[in-house]
Nucleic acid binder design. Structure first.
Lengths: 119, 119
DNA sequence: AGGCTATTTCGATGATTGTGGAAACAGGCA
DNA sequence: TGCCTGTTTCCACAATCATCGAAATAGCCT
């Protein structure tokens, strides 16, 4: 993940309305939620919410799919995982054993293909 | 973790210089790095870096400790874990089995006391 | 005390961002 | 076609933020 991608993600989540929107959308995985419903539940005008959803979309945190007249937004949880891994990727100067178990949950032991908790 | 705490963390990381600074400090765990050294390595004036480090500190992402004339900054990786857990805490409306394995690395299986990968 | 180094605080400037009214666009239905 | 609903784009204003020169603070040394 590029540095600028991570900044887009953090910028997207660094705003109260957007953070609420993302968490609301995430709470509705895997069904998703239409844009207007997000605006209504958070009591924000539709056009304001629309621009916030656009920021979340550009950051890769949600995806939009048209369904008749509504546009359904769904969370991209892989993106969260990517950015978390990015943050701790070169922790401790490449000697991860130094900062275990702080990063234990982010890196090898739970990723697909790992064989044990012993990383 | 409060909603506002998460926003402070994301705001702190949503800026190129601060993200670089945090990752640099994290790369020097557990020894830490003096403020001037962070500024010098990232080629940023000391006072500019000082205000950025203040933001990171207020967000709880780093801690400062005076050591003679220098002020040593260290990363608070627990804070990263906290905010990651916060993000996925009510994923899928409290039915986490619906979005496994997306959140597998964040939650139970690798936390202290867990007994297996089978969460 | 005086001088030196490391760091922070103050203050001002230019740039970016959140917000929401108004208008435009897209799709369904009569 | 015309009308309605859901959503986005355009635009402008107020507020917040990043940057950095200058001054202030903190600590060590002679």
């Amino acid at each position: 993940m590029e540095n600028t991608d991570a900044i887009d993600v953090f910028t997207a989540l660094a705003q109260a309305t957007r953070l609420d929107a993302f968490r609301l959308i995430m709470a509705h995985e895997p069904h998703g939620l239409p844009a207007g419903e997000v605006a209504r539940r958070l009591e924000v005008p539709q056009n304001t919410m629309s621009s916030h959803l656009a920021v979340l979309t550009r950051a890769g945190l949600v995806t939009a799919e048209r369904h008749s007249r509504s546009i359904i937004y769904r969370a991209e949880l892989d993106r969260v995982r990517e950015v978390a891994s990015f943050l701790v990727s070169d922790c401790c100067g490449g000697r991860p054993e130094l900062c275990q178990p702080l990063v234990a949950e982010f890196t090898p032991c739970c990723t697909p293909g790992a064989t044990s908790n012993a990383c």
